[in-house]
Design a binder for these strands. Structure first.
Length: 291
DNA sequence: CGGCAGGCGGTTA
DNA sequence: TAACCGCCTGCC
């Protein structure tokens, strides 16, 4: 890693870091692409990043922040080539999925932000989750800076701020609907528990799927395997000749994806969303008839 | 075009 | 098991 003025340049394996894949695969909703750079906020800091053949370029950071924050946030210590190789060799579908989304990385995100963001994600879709989360930050997050075209950039709100609000306050700002009371109570609970999210499913508004997301996207449990409608659909298409129940799917996941389960889930999820039902059927046909 | 079902990256009671 | 907020899509 080296620093040139306000630009950090770090080595990243060329095929293991793709901004679009990282920021649009559903793990975070705070990054957007502008003029060839991806801009985002985490840990109360705003940066811009892009990649260039084997290099990660970061603007708005410095040596200290890179070492203390971004190195870990972008999961740079993990060797994704090794993970993709292992998954590819253990499963023909993962070979295809890791080829399609090979630049995905699992960000190590902040506990409170992840908890609230995925409470919002329940029974919701990506464009609307993005809107809600960013509206929440704009309304209640502390100001970080003004960007080059005059927009105020906000951090994710602190637990104390959200805990002091009413559900109606949140609703007015975000239009997150019936999830708003969950956001307030989760903020209060989070404070009462001293920031402990080791059992996310014990928070109101957090069921099995959201709990898995929190564990996986904070880096707490890399075997966590969130099962949403897309993953459920794909698992039954690829591995079952009948419509499996949730228990059956969970059983299968535990044995089949034991190691690197969370990574497998991300590759599969990203891959499935790019395919039509017909394309999946054709792929299943082809893989089954291979010697 | 505009009104109105139908469907979402689940959870709760 | 249905109801839930609100936005987007497709249909008439």
């Amino acid at each position: 890693m080296e620093q040139i003025n306000d630009l950090i340049v770090a080595d990243v394996p060329e095929n293991d870091f793709d901004c679009r894949q990282i920021f649009t695969c559903g793990q975070t909703f705070r990054w957007k692409e502008e003029n060839g750079w991806w801009t985002g906020v985490a840990h109360g800091r705003k940066i811009k990043i892009r990649t260039e053949t084997g290099k990660l370029l970061i603007k708005g950071s410095d040596n200290g922040d890179f070492d203390n924050v971004w190195h870990d946030y972008f999961d740079l210590p993990t060797d994704y080539s090794k993970i993709k190789k292992y998954l590819s060799e253990s499963d023909p579908f993962l070979a295809l999925a890791t080829a399609a989304g090979g630049g995905i990385r699992l960000l190590k995100q902040e506990p409170f932000e992840t908890l609230i963001t995925f409470i919002i994600s329940a029974n919701n879709n990506i464009p609307r989750i993005t809107k809600c989360v960013n509206a929440l930050c704009d309304a209640f997050g502390e100001e970080i800076c003004i960007d080059e075209i005059g927009r105020t950039v906000h951090a994710f709100p602190k637990p104390e701020r959200l805990a002091a609000l009413s559900a109606d306050d949140i609703s007015e700002a975000t239009h997150a609907g019936y999830r708003c009371p969950y956001i307030v109570t989760a903020a209060r609970e989070f404070i009462d528990r001293g920031g402990d999210i080791s059992k996310p499913e014990t928070y109101m508004g957090v069921g099995p799927k959201v709990a898995s997301c929190v564990k996986l996207f904070t880096g707490q449990d890399m075997d966590a395997f969130p099962v949403d409608v897309w993953v459920k659909r794909l698992i039954s298409e690829l591995y079952f000749d009948h419509e499996p129940g949730l228990a059956e799917i969970n059983d299968f996941i535990k044995t089949h994806f034991a190691l690197y389960g969370g990574y497998a889930q991300q590759y599969l999820f990203y891959w499935r969303r790019s395919l039509t039902d017909d394309a999946v059927r054709a792929i299943v046909e082809e893989v089954r008839h291979k010697p």
